[in-house]
Design a binder for these strands. Structure first.
Lengths: 341, 341
DNA sequence: CTGTTAGCGCCTTCAC
DNA sequence: GTGAAGGCGCTAACAG
């Protein structure tokens, strides 16, 4: 691979001029510029990124830390991040943690090594856990944006939906259909998404004048399997609910599975609502009624905010709350007419 | 952030010694080493990766080029890649192309910029398309490994399953159940996976002495939607097949959807087999019989091969063909007893 | 075993 | 509008 001085030689100019042609072409006379550009193309020259990073003290890379890349929800967010990254000339470094503190720490250290200029966190808890990390890491964090989750009580820039409002849409839909006995499958209770969605759930029931029954809430871990297990518990009861709101689509799919194993029909015997609107939700049997999040847009916005922070071209926004939308499909309907009492 | 010379000063040694403590500690006396390490920890020092890259001429990063990160199949492969990358000290750069040549090229140029030392390609066609790319790119490619797909007629290192053998497992299973009229939904015909799986399909029918009917093969694009469309065409026919082998799980799910829309029951009226064994396959209705690929292992092996190439510690393997496994679930059964003729 | 020295390739003053 | 020079932080000879 040729270097800048090769180009300089080939074009009969100094390396400073080559550098200018690349970074600030308007400072170079038209014909010098043409000569240099010709040499660049002829030799297929690309500036060495390590040299540039060392000199400019920035890597033009961002690190995306995600708990599980295999989760289609996160994959979609990353997709959005990557779209903007490419547009704005940033490279995406992928950090998959499986919620393993050792791995989280390993990735945070890449920041200290200056491999990335900024950080997008898809996991709200990470910085809290990182408390045990060397002061260097915890202290001077780079520009950073949370996506989806956030860390309550801090004011890091965040992109997400209004989770409580989303939950309200779902529950109101069930109320409108006539359901009175509604259960919920939550995520882990410490999770901020769980809390916000649970809040929306309770508020809506309260507003409707319905007492909510604590025993109708079971927590899973956002996985389909956990939804199925929670569903089995909830539906095996004599006084089972006629509808269940699930904190995400995967758990809703699990509940549907549990229902069908118990011989219950969805939605005739049980209505189920999810959250996210994964690609597979619409193709599920029955097609899943769910609260859609604009996943791609969340990723895109997060990366835009980070780039604005990094390039300080645009005035940085500090928060972006995107809209959810209730998608009514076939997994919800009126409650069964005859209830055994 | 402190630099190496800060550490040198703090520990009362030269930067060369600090460097040795970090890279080749066995060359340093025990107490110097301890002093330096203490300083490193106290100041929270991390070597600057740009400086190191510039000096050593390697980035310890690999670029993974993937057609669609949102596809759960690819996401799982990347997961495996990332596991090994972390273990071996490499950073994963993510390149999502959407099969867009402009994007593909943008990512290939990162190689020229020396942002990555090696390349994992999840798309066999990329290098062929890249023919129009500046000679620099096409000519001196870095160490590279194909995963899943490959470029026939070349001998780049490749990790994949034996796709023809996998298809044979699927079709043999259908034959064993008594099916004689078997259709296939393929991927795009130029795709190497399509070709290999189609080959396995035809060979198995031939070996069984069954003539295969060209009109029973329809090509989709590996998406669920395309599977549904292909399914509709195939199943609307008077002489529809009693079983369909699909080149991946998503299309199989689409076929099942099409079948149910036509009032056909799976597997009573139609058996369906997929390929991949996505996470959702086991939870589908009906649970999908499919040919499982060891996705995580494919990713891990590809990254191991690339690291071996890069570090030349281990003798590089040139190919790794991993095993597929037929997973029989609920989407296949004997053909319907009464055929209308 | 440790220090000195010389760059890796680029950008950015500072002169002209 | 252009060139010369210095240095970003690190590692790899080469001495000692």
């Amino acid at each position: 691979m040729s270097t800048m001085s090769d180009i300089a030689k080939a074009a009969g100019v100094s390396t400073a001029t080559v550098s200018r042609v690349i970074s600030t072409p308007e400072l170079v006379s038209e014909d010098t510029r043409a000569r240099v550009q010709a040499a660049v193309e002829r030799l297929g020259y690309r500036p060495n990124s390590a040299a540039r990073s060392l000199r400019t003290q920035k890597s033009t890379a961002v690190l995306v830390i995600v708990p599980e890349i295999g989760n289609p929800f996160f994959a979609r967010i990353i997709h959005g991040i990557e779209q903007i990254a490419l547009e704005r000339g940033y490279t995406v470094l992928l950090g998959n943690t499986e919620n393993d503190p050792v791995r989280e720490r390993a990735y945070l250290e890449m920041i200290d090594a200056r491999r990335a200029d900024g950080l997008i966190l898809l996991n709200g808890q990470l910085l809290r856990r990182a408390a045990g990390v060397p002061p260097s890491v915890a202290a001077d964090l780079p520009p950073l944006v949370f996506a989806c989750e956030y860390l309550p009580g801090t004011d890091w820039p965040t992109v997400r939906v209004d989770n409580a409002a989303g939950a309200r849409l779902a529950v109101q839909h069930l109320l409108d259909l006539g359901h009175k006995r509604i259960g919920m499958i939550t995520g882990p209770l410490w999770n901020i998404l769980t809390r916000d969605r649970l809040q929306g759930f309770r508020d809506t029931l309260n507003d409707a004048g319905l007492a909510w029954d604590e025993s109708l809430m079971i927590s899973g871990d956002f996985s389909l399997e956990s939804g199925a297990i929670a569903g089995q518990k909830l539906l095996a009861r004599e006084d089972r609910p006629t509808a269940v709101f699930c904190a995400n689509d995967e758990m809703a799919m699990g509940v549907i599975k549990a229902a069908s194993q118990l011989g219950l029909r969805v939605p005739a015997d049980l209505s189920v609502v999810g959250f996210d609107d994964l690609k597979f939700a619409e193709h599920w049997t029955p097609a899943l009624t769910t609260v859609a999040q604009p996943m791609l847009e969340i990723g895109r916005t997060a990366m835009e905010m980070l780039c604005d922070l990094l390039d300080d071209t645009a005035p940085p926004r500090n928060n972006s709350i995107l809209k959810t939308k209730l998608i009514v499909r076939a997994s919800t309907g009126p409650p069964p007419v005859v209830t055994r009492l």
